[in-house]
Amino acid sequence: MPHRTFFWFIFPSLLAMLLFIALPIGSVIVQSVHQQHEQVLRTVENQGPFGTTTSTVVDQEATRALREAEPLGRFVGLDVYFDRAHLAVEEVGQAWAATDSIGAFVDRLMNLPFYRALIFTLTYVIVVTPLTILLGLAVALGVNGLPRMFKGPTIFVSLLPMMVTPLVGALVLYWMLEQNGILGSALQSLTGDPTLSLRASTPLTWITLFAYGVWSSAPFAFIVYYAGLQTVPQDPLEAAMVDGASRWQRIRYVVIPHLAPLTVFIALIQLMDNFRVLEPVISFNAGANAPSLAYSIYSDLRGEIALFNSAAATSMLTIIGVSILLTPVLIRTWRDFNAKRGH
């Protein structure tokens, strides 16, 4: 296709992506190196009974005028990145010096908003991704063994947790797990602790969020694996049976290697999606116990006064995190592409 024709075909799509994906990233970078203007101070002279005193007051009007005129604020370089709400270089240094074990250091880190969000997000990614893959594989093997007439309805039901709106799916689970919900009260009577509640216990909040994560993404892994199972080569399977391999050995040495490339694909999609977890944190009302990186951006933007600069800095740090996760994929795709061109 000539370059000119190609350009006109792709132009609308490309324009949309440049304006609303590439430019905003630029906008985030610019916002993150600015800081809202400080309050304008004014010295006032007071004629008092004991002579003239001077005091400093905040000039509300001038402050508002200045902030309105320059909503972006003033240029501060990387200050926002290093402040207490983000990388908190100073506080981390102090914590490192003051603590003598890794556990105590991590405890101190958990009090810093950015690190708390980072630790929660990474734990979420690390816990949910492998469990999703395992559950998905198990369900796929199970459904594959069902009689034909049950397969369709089972697949329909299995798709539901993934297809529903994340905020809604998380709410549906939360209402059951809540103190007064059916599972919440079951948990209370099982443990014999009538005060047990999600809101009060950080570990419980984390565990239920992980459970939501696995529940909502396992269907994706299931569908991909199930499709993979339909294309398992029959010859090696039969050969293995002739050689007396047990069912487990056939799964282990024939089926699983066949599914391995799919696992890479599922893991990549899951890593990307789990890293930006936001909705369940809102549905579970868990912003205090289990904030994710996306949640801290959201709450910065949603506050009484929107903290654009702070949100932008966290966004940049999140984008850097995503890029680190994504680099291996890009390198791999690049190699594949070059290999194809070589032929």
């Binding site: 609303f20 994906i21 430019l23 905003p24 990233i25 630029g26 906008s27 985030v28 916002q31 909503p71 972006l72 990307m272 890293f275 930006r276 936001l278 990186l293 996306a294 951006i297 959201y298 910065d300 933007l301 929107a306 654009f308 949100a311 932008a312 966004s315 940049m316 999140t318 984008i319 995503v322 996760l325 994504l326």
Partner: peptide
């Protein structure tokens, strides 16, 4: 791969 919330943080202002 860009988290949508980071893009939104670029739009708002």
């Amino acid at each position: 791969a860009m988290p949508h919330i980071t893009l939104v943080s670029g739009y708002l202002l």
